[in-house]
C-alpha cells in the first residue's frame, strides 16, 4: 500500500486521467476490457518516460492512448460496430430524479445521434466536450491541423444541432 510519504509522482496523474482515458479508449477500441489494457499500457509508457511538463501531459497521454487503441483495433482487424445497444447506458450525476431523467435522455439521444456522424467528427467532439481539450491539444493528438479540427467540430456541432430534438436553454 502506498503511503503519502511514498506517493509516486504518477499517482495523481492516474487519479486524474485514468477514467477519462478509459472512456476515450473505449470509444475507439469498443470494450472496456481492451480500453483498460490500452490505458495501462499508456501509463506504463508514461512511467518509463518519466514526468512530463503539465501542459504536455494531457496531449501526450491522449496521443499515446489513441495510438495504442488504433493499433490494437487494426491489429485485431476488428471494426467495432457501435450501435444503440452497444452504446453505454447513460448514467446520472444529477441529484434530482427529474434532472437525472433529463440527463439520461440527453446522453441517450446524444449517443444515438453521434452514430450518424463520421468517425473523425465523433472523435473531435469527444475530445472537446468529454475530455475538455483545446483545439490545439486535439490537433496534437489527432495529428490534424487546428483549422481542420475547428472545421470538424463546427460541422459536427451543426449537424447535431439540426438533429437535436430537445429545446436548448440559450443564454447569452
Amino acid at each position: 500500500m502506498t503511503t503519502p510519504s511514498t506517493l509516486s509522482w504518477i499517482e495523481p496523474i492516474l487519479e486524474r486521467f485514468e477514467r477519462p482515458l478509459i472512456q476515450y479508449a473505449t470509444s475507439i477500441a469498443g470494450t472496456e476490457d481492451r480500453a483498460r489494457d490500452i490505458v495501462q499500457d499508456t501509463f506504463l509508457r508514461l512511467a518509463q518516460q518519466g514526468p512530463l511538463e503539465p501542459e504536455r501531459l494531457a496531449p501526450w497521454l491522449y496521443t499515446v492512448c489513441r495510438n495504442r487503441a488504433i493499433d490494437l483495433k487494426r491489429k485485431e482487424n476488428r471494426i467495432v460496430a457501435m450501435n444503440e445497444d452497444s452504446h453505454p447506458e447513460p448514467a446520472s450525476s444529477e441529484p434530482s430524479p427529474a434532472a437525472r431523467l433529463e440527463a439520461k435522455e440527453q446522453a441517450d439521444c446524444l449517443g444515438r445521434l453521434l452514430l450518424r456522424l463520421p468517425e473523425n467528427q465523433r472523435e473531435v467532439l469527444r475530445l472537446r466536450f468529454q475530455c475538455d481539450l483545446s483545439y490545439r491539444e486535439i490537433s496534437e493528438i489527432t495529428q490534424l491541423g487546428e483549422g481542420n479540427v475547428g472545421f470538424l467540430l463546427h460541422t459536427g456541432i451543426k449537424t447535431l444541432r439540426q438533429l437535436w430534438p430537445h429545446p436548448l436553454e440559450v443564454r447569452p
Partner: peptide
C-alpha cells in the same frame, strides 16, 4: 453535460 453524463468508466 451529455458526455459527462455517460457512466463513469471503471478504473484500472
Amino acid at each position: 453535460g451529455a458526455f459527462h453524463a455517460e457512466p463513469a468508466p471503471a478504473t484500472l
